[in-house]
């Protein structure tokens, strides 16, 4: 594959030096903090890395609608119901912005979705955990969206223009998600004994998976170095995880809830929290598809896709009958963003 060839010396000497110059010019643009736009030349590996990352991100938003969507019909007040619908709907919107950004790189959304449904594409493992009680909706907003924000804010400055712009929009919209989650947790934590217990139980179950959201330790992260060089990534997994823990632990204390980590302690010298070892075998298992809800999540997406096929076909058939030929556009044509 061309992607791998980039890392090794090129075959033909002339071709190689020309290629090297192009790569150098590209890297220089990135180093000057210029944005790369869809029609600009880019190394194939850069394009593929972006497609993979943006698609994973988009899939995560779409699959992420399911665990929270699970509680829309059971939200305990009309206000909470409206907030939850708006939030789950935002996630769908974010998935859409991200698929749009990916499409500017020359892939069709249909192909990306096909990869998701066939199990070839990854999405954030956090969404393979079940939402068992109402408090899980609070925990997801507070912890999962909190972790996502840590990851996403630096992406607003990502070198690829359409991705960076999508992230700006997403981060702006996302800011209510975490606040509503924390407010929900606060209400439960200050509520009845049963509600408090529900909140603690949710924290117990979501804490470690949230920390896993930042990915493997830097020593084991395959893509980090190149992605940092390309400014697709701005901080390492461990840096972001530490930052998340440092801001979240005091928030848990304010709730009067206990973080389920006996090794957690404040380290005066480094001014960081020290925390226990993450169970990476669980992380790997869920990643491999052996988490509690992997099967259900993909099944739900497949069902939506299959059940919707006749609808999508009907709309295409109707358009073909009724649109003036001049206005008929080519499906799947290249995007511009």
């Amino acid at each position: 594959m061309y992607t791998q060839a980039l890392d090794s010396p090129a075959a033909g000497a002339d071709e190689g030096s020309e290629e090297r110059e192009r790569l150098e010019r590209f890297q220089a643009r990135i180093d000057r903090d210029e944005k790369i736009e869809p029609k600009d030349w880019m190394p194939e590996a850069y394009r593929q890395t972006l497609i993979r990352q943006i698609a994973q991100h988009a899939h995560s938003e779409i699959v992420g609608m399911l665990p929270e969507g699970n509680w829309i019909t059971r939200a305990p007040s009309l206000r909470r119901k409206a907030v939850l619908i708006a939030k789950v709907q935002d996630e769908g919107g974010h998935g859409m912005y991200l698929y749009s950004a990916a499409e500017t790189l020359g892939v069709a959304r249909g192909d990306l979705i096909e990869q998701l449904l066939s199990g070839r594409a990854k999405y954030s493992s956090i969404f393979n955990y079940p939402t068992l009680t109402w408090a899980d909706i609070g925990a997801i907003g507070w912890l999962v969206d909190g972790a996502a924000i840590m990851n996403q804010v630096p992406l607003c400055r990502c070198s690829y223009g359409p991705y960076a712009r999508a992230m700006v929009r997403i981060c702006k919209e996302e800011s209510f998600h975490q606040r509503q989650g924390y407010e929900l947790m606060l209400t439960l934590a200050r509520g009845s004994e049963a509600q408090h217990a529900m909140a603690q139980d949710a924290l117990n179950r979501w804490w470690w998976p949230s920390l896993m959201m930042f990915g493997p330790n830097d020593a084991h992260s395959v893509h980090t170095a190149q992605s940092m060089r390309w400014k697709i990534k701005r901080f390492t997994n461990d840096e972001l995880r530490q930052k998340f823990i440092d801001v979240t632990v005091p928030q848990a204390e304010y709730l009067g809830l206990t973080v389920p980590d006996p090794d957690l302690r404040w380290d005066q010298t480094s001014e960081h929290y020290r925390f226990g070892e993450i169970d990476w075998s669980e992380f790997q298992a869920v990643l491999k598809g052996e988490g509690p809800c992997n099967r259900e999540r993909l099944e739900a997406r497949r069902a939506a896709h299959e059940n919707g096929r006749w609808v999508r076909e009907a709309a295409v058939a109707y358009a073909a009958k009724h649109q003036a030929p001049a206005h008929r556009a080519q499906a799947g044509a290249g995007a511009l963003s």
Binding site: A86, G93, G308
Partner: peptide, 17 residues
């Protein structure tokens, strides 16, 4: 509200929402 995340397209999910 039952349909959010289960619509025929992402766009329809947003609309029904």
């Amino acid at each position: 509200g039952e349909l959010l995340g289960h619509g025929p397209t992402l766009e329809e999910d947003l609309a029904l929402g």
